[in-house]
Write a protein that binds this DNA or RNA. Structure first.
Lengths: 179, 179
DNA sequence: AGACATAGGTTCAATGAACGAACTTACGAT
DNA sequence: ATCGTAAGTTCGTTCATTGAACCTATGTCT
């Protein structure tokens, strides 16, 4: 369903995957979710996505079991979207895309991914260059690369400048008290 | 440009990649090109994509240097689209998507990828399970898996049932002489 | 009490992309 | 002269995306 009329004739697991995550914005929402973004307004600020499209993507990703909608406070009722194991399994897809983007579109090293246990760099296929382990997503620490903008406009990008473990919730700055 | 209004706010190589190959149908066209499909009508038959959309994708993929348009006969003038090195570099992305699709959407093993030199199976991250080499795309042989439809309707799918090396041109059946 | 702020949405009109059918071009074969 | 083929283009309809405005429930400031 994800692509309106889907790739029905395709007997291929690539097409199956793209039916679920191939729509515009979808993989960027998943990327942000893996980066630890969980709240509607944070996705909104970081992605610059239209609200209606974000609502639609969050709904279908939740239906597909890639995100899980979770009440994090009553009164006022507030929900957050947490990436599931199924969603985290998309990490290799994102690494592969990121590698291709860096090598074939734009050579900047914007973010580095390090192994939390040993500090070694995690290679695109998930192995730690230092100790050789296949690093699970939860043990990856993301740090800004040398060429990443160090003073971005939106608060979510700023929060993502601090080294942080993937999957852990992102902590954004508390809102400034009014003037 | 590939996504109309593109992901401009995104300082991220994943977003960069998706600007180029994130549109509907694009990755499936690249997949087919890596499988050896080269001709307009073969893409058409295999993908079931609207002609106008196929024309648009072939044009932008050519402009992006992912495919190369090549005259294969004069009189009548006929062109084919051959995947470039830049396009073949998307193979890991497609493998990662295919793996996710198989593990998290639909468990069928539709195609197997073997190392041409030793016959071992090529793992999702490109290593041969038998001999351990990181297998270049050109040395991958694709064979139908046990659960792939053995009598598909379109001639391109039928041609893809025979074991074939990736990147090598696909040979479709010659058209049947009229009744 | 009233005004404003916050989080997480929905609604809607305008635009843009995808769809599918029909048509075109340039040839070769019967 | 007609048919067939490969590689397209054109066009009207439908569907998706966009951005702005609005809505709801609650908490906070004065």
């Amino acid at each position: 369903m994800a692509l309106g009329k889907d790739y029905v004739t395709q007997e291929c697991s690539i097409a199956r995957a793209l039916e679920v995550v191939g729509e515009r914005w979808t993989l960027l929402v998943v990327r942000d979710a893996i980066y630890g973004v969980r709240r509607y307004n944070d996705f909104l600020a970081h992605l610059g996505i239209p609200r209606a499209v974000l609502s639609a993507r969050l709904r279908t990703l939740t239906e597909e079991g890639i995100l899980e909608k979770r009440r994090y406070q009553e009164s006022p009722p507030r929900d957050e979207y947490v990436v599931t194991e199924r969603g985290a399994a998309l990490w290799p897809v994102l690494r592969a895309l990121g590698r291709w983007g860096r090598e074939h579109v734009d050579a900047h090293r914007l973010r580095l991914f390090l192994h939390a246990d040993c500090g070694g760099e995690v290679e695109p296929y998930g192995k730690c260059a230092a100790c050789g382990t296949l690093v699970p997503v939860a043990d990856v620490v993301m740090v800004p690369g040398p060429e990443l903008d160090s003073a971005p406009a939106d608060p979510v990008s700023r929060a993502l400048l601090r080294p942080k473990r993937l999957l852990e919730p992102l902590e954004t700055e508390p809102p400034q008290p009014a003037h």
